[in-house]
Design a protein around this nucleic acid. Structure first.
Lengths: 253, 253
DNA sequence: AGGACAAAAAATGAATGCAAAATAGCGTCC
DNA sequence: GGACGCTATTTTGCATTCATTTTTTGTCCT
């Protein structure tokens, strides 16, 4: 075994065959056409899913072999990921997975909060009754998951609600930025399934009620406040959770 | 002259000599170290300053000659600029300067409004009395420019106030995102020096008074509202201005 | 034996080369 | 005379190659 990357069972496809048509909502959705775009998507997922340890080197050569491409398109993708803040480029020392400090996470959560807050504000201007009904549906669905203590289902419904609000803002630029930042913390979220605390869970449900209420009344600035506070509370819960030590990660021998 | 790029008097330095130490506040500030980073900064400025017409092709070969580099680092920079939304990459058809539709501008203004709104909210949590005093200083300075009808001075002071608020938010991630979006509309702002309307100008001054007032009281959600509305009004003024025909741009023969 | 130095090995950063696609240029046909 | 189609040139995308820098390894000296 020559690899320094922990073998996590990710399928190593020698050629750059792309199975599914991906529906990325990025600025230019022609990424799947060119090789560097394809690699960008795949490499982003690869990093986001935590296949490379935090702060570890991103081995160009190995990734090239893994994707079955030359270094040129890979390096182009690396530059973009660096611009996105997912990795960092050290001069003459290659790329490293960007290690997010607690402060970084706080900042990211706050920016997400700001974006969602904005989304709510804008949504009040344009949202249709049908969209609100749809969100209500999701809300009740989420409530059901809450009652059944189904965290996975709850999480999915929750995410869809937030996405619906962002969608209702009718602002593609916002949507893109939102997805971008969400991607950065997805890495953390992936390993840390927080919100396990009953207390916080119930609180979140109440906040969601308030969100829905404000949305129904199209109370823009009020909804803006509620959403910000909601995300702020999420941030606190997440940071608290991450501060605690966890034994889920298999320790190295 | 073989160049198809309009010669706007931008100094064409054949070698990649970087005169001044640039103080970019991007995620990784080692950009000046590597060639592609250097090129990224220069190319971004070049595009933002409008040296290439809207929607026009970005000529790889010529830019290479202009910067005195090979295509590889330039193409890397192009990928990043595309990710930033400044240009768009058409498969097998090269890069084009991204033409911002009116809708795009509206969206961008709204996102900027959301970010400043967030900045104000966060600033209320952490801003010191000294910082507020500094902003007050800028405010009075700006007021002076307003009275003297000095638009340039007014604009500079205005921008510094907004930057100060963003700085007071103590959030580097936000600061970076803000700079990023600001860069995208800088291109428009460059040619369109709006806010020429007296009416709007006076209104903006009043809004700034309200901003300062809310800031002094650390009224987070109130400031958030005011800032959003302020930027919203700016948006309206800017769009109105751009909708009007202008004769400042020299017509092509 | 441990550390410092030096050479080898590997990796990075940029340039060049090559195949495929697109654009333009030109002739032909209707 | 204009539209269509074919070829030549340019341009793009990626692979390969070359020069530097870094990292590792091995050796020598203390």
């Amino acid at each position: 075994m020559k690899s320094t990357i922990p073998d996590t069972g990710v399928p190593i496809t020698p050629s750059a065959t792309n199975g599914g048509d991906r529906q990325e909502n990025r600025q230019d959705n022609r990424h799947e056409a060119s090789l560097h775009g394809e690699i960008l998507l795949r490499l982003r997922d690869y990093v986001v899913e935590g296949n490379i340890p935090d702060g570890a080197r991103v081995p160009e050569r190995q990734l090239c072999e893994m994707f079955g491409i030359s270094r040129t398109p890979l390096r182009e993708a690396l530059k973009v990921l660096a611009a996105e803040g997912l990795i960092e480029l050290l001069p003459n020392r290659g790329a490293r997975v960007r290690q997010l400090s607690q402060r970084d996470l706080e900042e990211l959560f706050d920016v997400m909060a700001g974006l969602e807050s904005l989304a709510g504000r804008l949504a009040c201007e344009a949202i249709t009754d049908e969209e609100i009904t749809a969100i209500e549906q999701l809300h009740y669905e989420m409530y059901g998951h809450y009652l059944h203590r189904d965290m996975h289902g709850y999480f999915q419904a929750n995410q869809r609600i937030h996405e619906s609000i962002v969608a209702a803002a009718r602002n593609e630029t916002l949507k893109t930025a939102y997805a971008n930042f969400a991607g950065r913390i997805r890495r953390v979220r992936y390993s840390a399934n927080f919100a396990r605390k009953r207390q916080r869970w119930a609180e979140a449900m109440r906040e969601h009620e308030a969100i829905l209420d404000a949305l129904r009344r199209r109370a823009a600035s009020e909804l803006s406040d509620i959403l910000f506070q909601h995300l702020r509370n999420k941030r606190v819960a997440a940071i608290e959770h991450l501060a605690e030590p966890h034994e889920d990660t298999p320790a190295a021998p």
